[in-house]
Amino acid sequence: MNLARHMAHGLVHHAARGLPWARTAWAEPMRQEVDSIEDDLAALRWAAGCLVATYSERITTMRLASLSPVIGLVALLVFVFGGYWIIGGHIDVIVEALPHELTIIVLAALAATSILTSVGGPGIWQAVTLALRGRRFQNADYRDLAFVLINASNASAPVAFRDTAAVRLIDDGTAMLEQQIAPDQIGSLLHARIAGILAGHRRAVQVLRNFGRSLLWFGGVAFLLGAVHTLGFFTEPLEVIGGMFGASAVGLVVGLMAAIGIVQPLANRLDAAIADDGNFYEFIRTVFLSRSAGSDVALAVHMACNGLPEDLALNQNERDTLASVSVTRA
């Protein structure tokens, strides 16, 4: 075997091993295709292409933070201040007051929120990142989970999964099956475990809501401080007093917009995402509940798949591949 053929074998072996769980059926076709190509350099090029295909499939399953919250934020600022400018509002007053108002309001709100946040819990930045990311588990993750659960029925198959909470749930479910714990107890125990997982995730929602409330109140504080400051200049001409009062009102506007226009929607978005993610853990619970009631693993996974929302449901080809994998494992 010459160097090109040797490299082709190495590349396609790496490509085949790197395929996502639900694409493992394509591993052997890739390997055999390389072996069937007689020209060594052509085989090497084909193997390199297989590697590109594997990474392309891996990247496809990666989740990118949705741009919609960022677009929404930009649109919010454009509509509010754009509308204000169109009706003849004095943008210069806002621009001049914005730096110190933002400093008072945002920094004060951050400080207040940090007092409320428990040690070891998520910080504001982490909570914002989680909210922007949205739902953690997408279609490909459910597909991978179904394959992992089928393979987990084979004691020698290692369960390698990136979500530690899911891995612990699977381990607990497997242990309870081995101990032949009654189905209703398995259901209750796993339900309580899932509730605990989601409660932990919801701490980030609480952090955002606290931050939003702080922004609102400190917007009011900034306004009152500005008003107090203005009172000291009552002998000045009206346009001066008006300008100062307008600048102090900017603080109230900033606090309201930040709290109600930005942070509260982010908190609601994160809350909805966590509720969606509950489907992932419920999938695991359904499988173990079905198995404890006597169903084989293929039927249990099939029942769990039927319980998925439409946008997360596995397509027919994925179900067929699952069925063929479970027959192979049987």
């Binding site: 890739m30 090029r45 292409g49 297989c50 590697l51 590109v52 295909a53 499939e57 496809t60």
Partner: peptide, 8 residues
């Protein structure tokens, strides 16, 4: 089409 495009 090369393998990297074709397989996906």
């Amino acid at each position: 089409l090369k393998a990297g495009t074709l397989y996906p």
